[in-house]
Design a protein around this nucleic acid. Sequence first.
RNA 1: GGCCCCGUAGCUCAGCUGGAUAGAGCAACAGCCUUCUAAGCUGUGGGCCAUUGGUUCGAAUCCAAUCGGGGUCACCA
Length: 596
Amino acid sequence: MNIEHFLSDTISPIVNELFGLTSTSNDIILQKTKKEFEGDYTLVTFPYIKAAKATPEKTGELIGEALLKANPAITKFNVVKGFLNFSLSNDFWVNEFNSISKENNYGIKPANSSGKQIMLEYSSPNTNKPLHLGHVRNNLLGYSVATILKTQGHDVIKVNLVNDRGIHICKSMLAWKLFGNGETPQSSGMKGDHLVGKYYVEYDKAYKKEIQTLIDSGVTKEDAEKQAPIMLQTQDMLRKWEASDKETIDLWKMMNGWVYDGFAISYKKLGVDFDKMYYESNTYILGKEVVTEGLAKGVFYKKENGSVCIDLTKEGLDEKVVLRSDGTSVYITQDLGTAIERFKEFPKISQMIYTVGNEQDYHFKVLFKSLEKLGYDWAKECYHLSYGMVELPEGKMKSREGTVVDADDLMDGMVVTAKETSEESGKIDHFSNEEKEQLYNTIGMGALKYFILKVDPKKKMLFDPKESIDLHGNTGPFIQYAHARIKSILRDYEKSTDSISISTTIQLHEKEKELIKLQYDFSKILEEAANTYSPAVVANYIYELAKSFNQFYNECSVLKEENTAIKEFRIKLIDTTAKIIKNGMMCLGINVPERM
RNA sequence: GGCCCCGUAGCUCAGCUGGAUAGAGCAACAGCCUUCUAAGCUGUGGGCCAUUGGUUCGAAUCCAAUCGGGGUCACCA
């Protein structure tokens, strides 16, 4: 039972009777009482002063008196202007805590209970270069939202659509052919994706050089870009690829293989995974039937030059080409086809979520609107999980200018910093080497993941490497540390917490009540995070909880407490706190160590 | 230029279905380790919530305009 609902249901009939209103419990404006005031919850009484024909103070008094009589859980109240602050009884909170601690799932609903199946696409890398910081945000966000949706009992299918074909892929292939001397990941010792990325850069260098030579010989810049021999060779290679030329396909398969081996390592480090992989080399042909279908339905129309368009000007969007005049498909053609294909392949899914950066906001508006006009009801349920760019202190990342932050370097750097800090603290000297390595990894990745996920996905964020490796304050390691401390206390307390039941005779300490209140919010927070697709909601909540524990820890000794009943209650209280921290961090894909 | 997003402490971010004196962290300064892990806790300073107007009992929050920043406007993906 939700406390707010319970209170609203109590208050609603009271104000109706007092003032002759017909409000429902949804109209009741309730909030948590601010720390500076006494009380647990606050009713805003401004809306009633007209009907009450009284001052805000008097109105508050009237409602407060009636509340005291109506519900024994409400013990006292005070009125400040139009705010009625009331307190709930000690017994009430103890009982609430008892019911929280009896649930063993702590806000996480059992799998498949909702019956809703959702497909969530994220990552979507290109196979011509390694992952960078932008991909890191994408991957962490997609994985986390999938996990959060699962806590609501939805069945989530995580998919990755790999962009493995096209002119940009041919560029690294050609460069390798021209300058590679048969270099392989084995021979060079390089990670496959980095090796391929190296040749993508080589290509760009050679291309620029050729352009400059042409410009120097009097060709315009525009023409030079088209005429550069290496560009012509690339286009030739793409044609060969499309014609399934064996040599080209073999090279493509080999180099993509290297990239996939490299990605597998990065994904593992990131802790993300997928239920199904899609490859654009398979899906890029999809969507042509959709165009035929759209033409028949009159949703699309053919232009004089043979290209097919959709007119979305009435919807406030533009006219958009869905098929080129030469009959080949464009980006959106594939997306239309792929979406329809997926709903056929998985008839039970009711929603598609695309984790893609906000530079494609417009594209997805067009895509969803087109699907809707084609008559697919599920189009309304499609969602673009749009996230802001990651910027660096020096400015924007540009792959060509080498100002990108490589994902592998970044992760390794975080782990190294975690190692240095941990060694400095000297707390884990007794750990085995294996345990140490695992801990450095947990802390370093925890810092990185939390740093990125605590920011609202919709907003662009600034990634300052110096700040991201900070382990103090609102950070992942801070929360991990709080968890490790709780576990340490629980280890020193030998008995099992399961047998403990809390008596209502215990008088709650202020900090204890705060912890209970926060714990009570966890399921509500998860629901909110799932509705808004925002891991940040969970991250900021867990930070509050961990901080609240630290304050409690500083004020109340747990193991030193002499009163057994209080001691047991506190053990139980921090045990549930640890469980919620663990579950919350799980939603962010962050591990919490037992000790650190 | 059209459309979309964003402007909150020196910095990074919360708060936004309208509610009390706008919150955290970092950085700075001052305290707290003989007590369950100080990666912690407590305190101090720091704000015309971009600007102006509107809506109302009440606006950081909703609406409009302006200024500033970003994105996007391909038969690229």
